[in-house]
Simulated assay, not measured.
Amino acid sequence: MAEELGLRERKKRDTKWRIYRTALDLFVESGFDKVSVQEIADASDVSKMTVFNYFGSKEDLVFHPMEEHFGDAARAVRDRGPGESAVDAVRRQFLEMIEVRDPSVGLHSEPFVLLVRRVVEETPVLRERVVVAAQRGIRAMTDLLAEESGDPVLATVAATTLSAARNALIEDHHRRLAAGESPEAIAAGAVERAHRAFDLVENGLKGYAVKA
């Protein structure tokens, strides 16, 4: 029974991945707006209903693997230990992601990640979803800090500043990848750049949101 369940789960995972990669290839070839869910289903050799069973919407076919990462910084703040500031928590998490070459911070060697970014940049509705998802992540961090500090205005300033520093680093990674640099070449100086960026934030937020 366990083997049967394991095989079933693997088949589901493989089907989901096949649909995702097929959709991405079609979006790159023809443009997001010109590809229908039925075309994706046909090319993936599944039914249209199966596509929606795995992905709630056409937009999810692009965002499903990445959307959770918009809340990474908020999770770092939420899970930080006693004596750790919000800046230090976000910095620590970011450095850990650099170390493992996490695709979500723009350090990867997988061509399809660049394709995802290309599709998003070329599609207005997807760019709008990025903005909404990013704002949701900032709001989550703001709410956490406001609950701890009792000051929603400073919490908003802190969350926005931390997110801006983090996003600037990620955008720099993506820009350099697009220019042809290798992930390893970028990663070689990524730790130092991250420290400088978060040091800059810390000078303005020094002593703020140190967990008791």
Rank of each mutant, 00 (worst) to 15 (best):
E148D: 11
L162S: 04
L145P: 06
A164S: 07
A140C: 09
R139K: 11
I170D: 05
A133Q: 09
A140M: 15
N167F: 06
A179S: 15
R176L: 14
A165D: 08
R175Q: 15
H173T: 07
H174N: 10
D143W: 01
L162N: 05
R175Y: 13
D143G: 05
A140I: 03
I170T: 15
S149M: 10
A158H: 01
A133L: 14
A159C: 08
I170L: 11
T156Y: 13
D172E: 13
G150P: 07
V153P: 06
T142S: 14
T156A: 15
P152F: 11
A178P: 03
E147Y: 04
A134Q: 04
R175L: 13
E147V: 02
R136Y: 01
M141E: 05
L162T: 05
A155W: 02
A140V: 08
Q135P: 00
R166Y: 07
A158T: 06
G150C: 09
A134S: 14
A146D: 08
R166P: 01
V153R: 10
G180N: 12
A179P: 11
A165E: 13
A155R: 03
A165P: 08
I138R: 04
S163I: 00
A179R: 15
D151P: 02
A165W: 03
V157S: 12
D151V: 04
H174P: 02
I138W: 00
R176V: 07
T142M: 12
V153D: 10
H174D: 09
T161H: 05
R175K: 15
N167R: 11
S163E: 03
D143V: 08
L162I: 07
L177K: 05
G137C: 00
P152G: 10
D151F: 06
I170G: 02
R176P: 03
E147N: 04
R176I: 05
R166T: 00
A158C: 06
V157K: 09
E171L: 15
A133M: 13
T160I: 04
S149A: 10
R136F: 01
I170N: 02
A134F: 01
N167M: 08
L154S: 02
E181A: 14
P152L: 10
S163K: 04
R166A: 01
A159D: 01
T156Q: 14
A158N: 02
A165G: 10
R166D: 01
H174R: 10
E147M: 02
H174T: 03
T161C: 10
E148M: 09
A179H: 15
A134M: 00
Q135W: 01
R176N: 05
M141G: 07
N167Y: 12
G137P: 01
A165Y: 06
G150Y: 09
Q135D: 06
A165V: 15
A165T: 12
D151Q: 09
R166G: 00
T156L: 12
A179Q: 15
V153H: 08
A140D: 13
P152R: 13
